[in-house]
Nucleic acid binder design. Sequence first.
DNA 1: GTCTATACGAAGATAGAC
DNA 2: GTCTATCTTCGTATAGAC
Lengths: 193, 193
Amino acid sequence: MSPRATDAPQRVVAAAAEMLARVGLNATSIREVSKAAQAPLGSTYHHFPGGKQELLARATTLAGDRVDALLARLLAEGAGPGLQQFLQRWRERLLDSRFEAGCPVLAAAVEVPVDAHPSAARDAAAAVFARWEQRLGDALVQAGHAPAAAAAQATLIIASVEGAVAMCRATQDIAPFDRVAAQLLAMVEHRAS
Amino acid sequence: MSPRATDAPQRVVAAAAEMLARVGLNATSIREVSKAAQAPLGSTYHHFPGGKQELLARATTLAGDRVDALLARLLAEGAGPGLQQFLQRWRERLLDSRFEAGCPVLAAAVEVPVDAHPSAARDAAAAVFARWEQRLGDALVQAGHAPAAAAAQATLIIASVEGAVAMCRATQDIAPFDRVAAQLLAMVEHRAS
DNA sequence: GTCTATACGAAGATAGAC
DNA sequence: GTCTATCTTCGTATAGAC
């Protein structure tokens, strides 16, 4: 079997995640995603019979898993240095994309699809947030923070990074991100040694 | 002149802001907004010749101004108590709407309109964020924080509240908001007396 | 100035040839 | 299983009657 043949669906999901991050959920069309992934429209519907709902839920999960894997790798070096590395990645992505790239999970969390009132993508976003919180909380406990405080700080980190990225995209300025990042690192270092 | 006659545009903008908060930028249609405001479609285009771009930019500004005015009023009681009151308002709005209501400014910040690549609404969101930061920063300085720290904390407050609201909407759970709110209040009280 | 009717395009989704 | 052509619906926006 040719290795390229069956990974067309993978390319479609990846393209959907990227578009979701840049323009949002409702602005992401199956047509454009298929074109970006060089897959015919009918092929996309063949692999994702659930249509847009299914595809964007999968894209949200994929993007979340990628970030979670990155977090797992970076946090192995310790909560403080790992978080710093992670924030540095985000900072570069914002600047490299000239503030066009955002977080696909946030888009799935706040946008309601034009037709169907509930959103499979929203549920996927909820699961992703839970995983990130777990991952960060565990690392903070490992670094010596009390479990309850660690869980609360994990939530604060995710929320403030999401918000900061959005602010940077609106203002076309990295300053909000830098201000937030500095305070998060100070907070984590505070009881971390 | 009848007082109700000329406030039809006001009702349309208010309806647009509410819909923007609930479903997002691209899911907000001029048709639905006009219907909600009980204004004919042609009337809306008459009052907002710039079309959807103009209307949603105005809605973003209106929503931002309302929050800014609320902040100004609450923060007059002091940074700590004022922030607590403000967070309480947000908490109630989330619960009362069963997590359907979000922040219209965030929607304007992260969504790219389906056609026009730049967004007037995004610029309006940037201006709103700047005003909120100024308002919160001033209050923190008044409360005795150093100016540089106050500005940074103002950014952190806005970013983390925006992110927390989004997380609550995804998870259909108030817990992320409560965890973030507790930490923000502790941070503000820390050097506040 | 207000509102109805409509033009035009793009979206999601499917049918059916290959 | 793959892909093209098409159906249907809804979006923004406008024309033109009143």
